[in-house]
């Protein structure tokens, strides 16, 4: 067994995690889980940023994922506040029931 793995494996792992995030977004009904799926997708992208950073031996990829992380934190704060508000007004977390845009 080889002692190291190619960089492409990291990228494929990133793609798989991203795909899982998309799947969660598509098939889950709970708005919090949907939100977590988005976080999963962001993490997957971060992984590929850091892999590319390794490939080019440049730290810029780290900076990018750092900013992604910051934006994710901001997004989590606002997003969860929105979820709280939605729940207060509608008493539901099911994403399909929040559909007043329909019709």
């Amino acid at each position: 067994m080889p002692t190291t793995v190619p960089l492409t494996w990291y990228l494929i792992l990133s793609a798989i995690l991203f795909g899982l995030g998309v799947a969660g977004f598509l098939f889950r009904r709970n708005i919090i889980t949907v939100f977590m799926s988005i976080e999963l997708m962001l993490n997957a992208v971060n992984l590929s940023f850091i892999s590319f950073s390794y490939k080019w031996r440049q730290v810029d990829g780290h900076i990018f994922s750092f900013f992604v992380m910051v934006v994710a934190a901001a997004e989590a704060a606002v997003g969860l506040a929105i979820i709280l508000t939605v729940f207060k007004n509608r008493s539901t977390l099911a994403i399909d029931e929040v559909n007043s845009l329909k019709n």
């Binding site: 190291t4 190619p6 960089l7 031996r57």
Partner: peptide
């Protein structure tokens, strides 16, 4: 043919 990842090969982080 991307290189294999070796721990410690990139220390810029």
């Amino acid at each position: 043919g991307t290189e294999n990842v070796t721990f410690g090969a990139f220390q810029g982080g």
